[in-house]
């Protein structure tokens, strides 16, 4: 594992914004697509960046995950346009269908992941697809003009999919 980190760090060494690029690639190459404490420590030490700064960067960008992510990520848009077209009930539906419960620390949680590590649910402020509201994304695909029915079908299909080996 650390050999791979070393290669990634060597690739970006001396380039501006190296830390961001390294964090991004390390996350992509880590099981469950996240940055764990050991990885952050390793990167900080090898790149000679203060630990607090590495953590600051990793927590600033919503792109970085500090918790293990599910196989599929469902991102519900909670922008104004989507909100007025019912994105909150959609979010509630997704959570309910996956058996996820919003915790009391709701506002401090950026995402929720099912125990079987199959799904992660998160929200986003805006996809820039307001004309197609409400929108949500499953992994890289955006679904527009979502309804409760369409969502139910979509989720059923996803759940029926075989778990990645």
């Amino acid at each position: 594992m650390y050999e791979l980190f070393d290669t990634i760090i060597a690739t970006y060494k001396g380039k501006p914004g190296a830390l961001l690029s390294v964090l991004e690639e390390v996350q992509r190459n880590t099981e469950h697509t996240y940055l764990n404490e050991q990885a952050l420590l390793y990167i900080a030490e090898k790149m000679q960046v203060p630990l607090s700064q590495v953590y600051s960067v990793a927590t600033f960008y919503s792109f970085f995950n500090l918790k293990p992510q599910g196989e599929h990520t469902i991102t519900v848009c909670r922008g104004t346009a989507c909100h007025t077209r019912g994105s909150k009930p959609l979010l509630d539906d997704v959570m309910a269908m996956l058996g996820l419960i919003e915790t009391e620390e709701g506002e401090d949680e950026s995402s929720y992941t099912t125990e079987d590590m199959r799904f992660t649910v998160r929200t986003v402020a805006c996809f820039g697809q307001c004309a197609l509201a409400p929108v949500l994304a499953v992994d890289e695909v955006i679904y527009s003009k979502m309804t409760a029915d369409k969502l139910a079908t979509l989720l059923k299909q996803l759940m029926a999919k075989k778990v990645k080996a």
Partner: peptide
């Protein structure tokens, strides 16, 4: 020393240490 930095963003921003472990576990 860089023991602390701004962690998170927006409403969640706070001054904290690496992994929020607290000053006592930091440099």
């Amino acid at each position: 020393v860089h023991a602390i930095d701004i962690i998170g963003r927006g409403l969640r921003s706070k001054v904290s240490t690496f992994m929020d472990k607290g000053l006592g576990s930091s440099v």
